[in-house]
Structures are given as C-alpha cells and as structure tokens.
C-alpha cells in the first residue's frame, strides 16, 4: 500500500443520504495512510461539495454512497466540470450495483469501490489518480 502523504481529499456524503459510518471509517483509514482529509459529513448538496473543493484546493473528492441517490452524484460531477475542476477525480464507495457503477463511470466518476474493498485498493487508486500526481490529465481518462 502506498502513502497518501501530500494528497488532500474531501470525504463526504451527498444529498439526503444520512448514513455516516462508511464515510467515517474511510476518512480515518485515509488519514492513517497519510492523506489530508477534509471531512464534510452528511447532508451536503453538490453545490456545497464543489464550493469546498474550490476553497480547499483538493486533489480528489470521495463520496460515500448508501442511499441510491445517484442523481446527486451526477450533478456533482457536472458542477465540478463547469467550474473547470476536470482533473479532480470523484471516487465513490458504498452499495452501488454494477450497472449503476458502469453508468456513473460513463458520466465521469473515476472509480467505484463496492463494500468489502480493501484499504490497499482504495489508497493505491487514489494515489495514482489524485490531481497532484496527474498534472493536467482529463478526468475521463481515469474512468478507463
């Protein structure tokens, strides 16, 4: 597992999804792995997350999703694009079915980590795709 030192990442829930445990656990795991985590918590609108991404100048955005409200995630990706943050990858974790994960990737989400994902898989992916380590690469490239 690589180190996340020097990488700044938002961890947030989105929309009315009130499930906080997954985000808390991942935030703690990322901090332990060296990342600088900006934890926004629950009840964040896409607008607020974009605002925080600009303010905090982050290298990636992590969304913990347990409420099937994918419309909010798509809105977030669109708003990041509109603000020119095309090289800040959006990464999601949670109970997201495969067909939905495919759709989200098509719409610009960099990666989806299902339940049971190892911390090594999450950390290594983030280190590899965070803006800081990718220069000006377009967001879509991370989607594969």
């Amino acid at each position: 597992m690589q180190s996340g030192r020097g990488i700044k990442i938002i961890v947030s829930m989105i929309g009315l999804d009130g499930h906080t445990t997954g985000g808390e656990v991942v935030a703690r795991m990322l901090r332990d792995a060296g990342f600088e985590v900006v934890y926004l918590g629950p009840n964040q609108t896409p607008e607020r997350i974009v605002h925080a991404a600009l303010q905090e100048d982050v290298d990636a955005v992590g969304i913990s999703s347990h409420a099937s409200n994918y419309g909010q995630i798509v809105a977030l990706v669109d708003m990041l694009r509109q603000k020119g943050l095309t090289n800040v990858p959006v990464v999601c974790g949670g109970n997201i079915p495969k067909h939905q994960a495919r759709r989200l990737r098509e719409q610009g989400v960099a990666e989806i980590f299902p339940p049971g994902s190892s911390s090594a898989a999450i950390v290594d992916f983030l280190v590899g795709t965070a803006r800081k380590n990718r220069g000006g690469l377009a967001l879509a490239a991370a989607g594969g």
Partner: peptide, 22 residues
C-alpha cells in the same frame, strides 16, 4: 424514502433528485 424521512416534500429542490429512492 430519505425525502419524507426528513419531512420535506418530493418537489423540494433537494428532494427532487431522490424522491422514491430507497
């Protein structure tokens, strides 16, 4: 759903994206 759990309506600007979800 999460919208009515929160006692807001389906046509609330935030509720609109997740009415009937979950």
């Amino acid at each position: 759903d999460r919208v009515s759990c929160s006692n807001i309506d389906s046509d609330h600007p935030l509720g609109r994206r997740e009415a009937g979800v979950l």
